[in-house]
Write a protein that binds this DNA or RNA. Structure first.
Lengths: 145, 145
DNA sequence: GAATTTTTGCGAAAATCTCGCACTAATTTG
DNA sequence: CAAATTAGTGCGAGATTTTCGCAAAAATTC
């Protein structure tokens, strides 16, 4: 993809906020015609600048009421496990996000489950492995954004 | 909102993956007519089950290359600060996510910045406050999802 | 099991997006 | 620095998609 100009950045800003804006709405805020906006957005999608569009579903209503952040530390002698772990995590529906980080911990996970019981089962199933040294669970009381 | 049935759940599943699916595409996967699907989706939006639709922009191309997770601990004697902090965080573009958690820390933040310099400036500006006791920065090496 | 309410599919109308075209602005080339 | 090329624009027609009214079917209530 070539360079992004100020129009592209403005469009990205707007679409990150609300991807259902129409061409006319975009035009009004960006200062280009509807067609020009949509053409640019189309290009942003084709070139991968916009990776995808997703609906943000309220976890409350959806039934996944509980969010837990987990700080995961692995045994130092098993770096080969990292890639495997990541692939495993990617498959688990409870794992909404997974960051591989520097510092005292190795992974930061965001977990969505229905309740404590479900979380407990998840922990038993996933974290009680020999190559996992330690995990710290932080229950989320409330979130922004 | 009343109860969600299996059709609603299927629609949510699909739209969480790709919110740009047309009525016909949804119909094919869900087993209802295009109109019925779109009506249901419309209702899911109106009732807040679908909170919003967003474009996922590649952080690389967008120029925000660096993600940092911050574990924030506040002074125990300033619980009044919590709400204020949350509101402040909500306004900061660098703060992509903010969770208020239990445990040794109070907040887990996800920060998106261009580079270390920008992050450093952010830290200076935001975290050097008397009511912030401690912060731990975890640079993200890689992420899934 | 009849009455009521909700949801469906169909299809027309409205809204939105896509694309060709002629034109303008910006960039490259000689 | 002007000519030539390229990239991007607005307009508007055509295609696609969504919205909505309606009658029928399904589900719920009494």
């Amino acid at each position: 993809m070539a360079e992004l100009d100020k129009f592209d950045y403005r469009l990205l800003e707007l679409l990150q906020e609300n991807s259902r804006m129409t061409g006319n709405e975009l035009a009004g805020k960006v200062g280009l015609s509807s067609a020009a906006c949509l053409r640019r957005v189309q290009r942003l999608r084709e070139t991968g600048v916009i990776e995808r569009d997703v609906a943000v579903v309220s976890p409350k209503v959806f039934g996944k009421r509980m969010t837990v952040i987990v700080l995961l530390t692995m045994e130092r002698d098993r770096p080969d496990r990292y890639m495997l772990m990541r692939e495993e995590f990617a498959k688990m529906p409870e794992v909404v996000q997974c960051h591989h980080v520097t510092g005292a911990h190795d992974f930061v996970l965001r977990i969505q489950v229905g309740d404590m019981e479900e979380y407990s089962a998840f922990v038993d199933r996933v974290f009680h492995e020999p190559y996992i040294k330690r995990y710290e669970s932080l229950a989320v009381l409330g979130s922004l954004k």
